[in-house]
Simulated assay, not measured.
Amino acid sequence: MDLDLRKIRYFTAVAELLHFGRAAELLHIAQPVLSRQIRALEKDLGADLFVRDSHGVTLTDAGRQLLDDAHQLLATADGTRRRVLQAARGRRRLVVGFRAGVVVTPALRAFTAAHPDVEAGARRVEWDDQEQLVLDGTVDIAYVRRPVREDGLELRPLYSETRVAMLPAEHRLAGKPEIMLADLDGERWLRYNDPLPGDLPLRTIEEKFERVAAGSGITLVPHSVAEQYSRPDIAYVSVSDADPDRVLLAWAAGRRSALIAAFAEAAAGVAVPD
């Protein structure tokens, strides 16, 4: 039995909204049609995906498992479609994703010198979309930072770098040559996926700058970020016992691409030493 991607898209909409009516509006189809498609998918899979009762709609264990897998499945399908269209247009192209602080230029230069017929470019990725943009084909290969959701990805460790504390310029520890994590006990920490109560989630390094400069908290960043981003209202201090930041290359698992392999080799050849 082959999975129908259209039904998977319908399922995902219902699973995320937990409401057939709103999902039907989002998908621009009639609710009875959506209900029939979900029933058909459940029949295809041989499992109930939703519990439907007077209290509303909830996911079954099988539904939760399918939702976990559906995002990767749909992203992979989107990536395949995008690459096929590019091939049909006769374009040889490589898009490299990178996180803040990562310098892509040396690897791109080495790659394009060996492949002058390939259009190569770079695109910034963030912590919350670094995996998705690889899986859906928006970027072909990316420099990612841990933590990384590994499902569907091939990962190659590239290098590690020290991390430093990002502090307000007037902070009590600003100007110190080096500190330890214990020196930061009692501070309010800013983390991408763990916002302070009442705060909006952080998404970019620029948002961290604004929060730190305003005195909302402190954070650790890779040394390369400190080198590339300088502000008079921000101070960076080395933290001797902080875990290093890990940079890896990521591409879609199972994808056989000579261009991806060639770029990975070029990136490894110019990687920053540990």
Rank of each mutant, 00 (worst) to 15 (best):
L155E: 04
A77G: 02
A77N: 06
L133P: 00
T112R: 11
Q31V: 15
G79N: 00
T138N: 02
R92M: 07
A120M: 09
Q132K: 07
R149S: 15
T76H: 01
Q37L: 10
K43T: 13
G97M: 05
A30T: 13
V118Q: 09
V125Q: 01
L49R: 10
R64F: 03
E131W: 08
V148W: 03
R89C: 08
L135K: 01
A75G: 04
T80A: 12
G97F: 02
S35E: 15
V125M: 00
L108E: 01
P116Q: 03
I29K: 08
G97E: 02
D68Q: 12
P32N: 08
R99S: 11
G152S: 05
V139Q: 04
A30I: 07
A122I: 08
R52Q: 12
I38R: 02
D48T: 15
I38C: 05
L135F: 01
A77V: 01
R146F: 09
E154T: 15
V95N: 06
D136V: 07
E154A: 13
W127N: 11
S35T: 15
Y143N: 00
L59N: 03
V33E: 08
D69P: 02
E154F: 05
E126S: 12
P32I: 13
D151M: 09
H115N: 12
A113S: 11
V134I: 13
A40C: 02
D128A: 10
S54F: 14
R81L: 14
A110V: 11
T60H: 04
V139L: 01
R156I: 15
D53T: 00
V102H: 06
E131C: 10
A110T: 15
V57R: 00
L94V: 03
V95A: 12
E119P: 00
R123F: 10
H115I: 04
A88I: 10
L34C: 14
Y143C: 01
I38M: 13
G79F: 01
V104E: 14
P32C: 09
L73V: 09
P32T: 09
W127S: 12
A113F: 05
L45Q: 05
A40Y: 12
E150V: 15
G56D: 03
P106D: 07
P106E: 08
R36D: 12
D151I: 12
L66E: 08
L66H: 05
H115G: 03
R91A: 07
D61E: 15
F111A: 04
D61V: 15
R39Q: 14
A30Q: 15
L133R: 14
R93E: 10
V144M: 05
H55G: 09
L85C: 08
V84H: 08
P116G: 06
V33A: 14
R91E: 08
L49H: 05
L41D: 02
D136W: 03
V148A: 00
R92Q: 14
A113P: 06
R109W: 06
G97T: 01
L135S: 03
A122G: 13
D68C: 04
L133C: 02
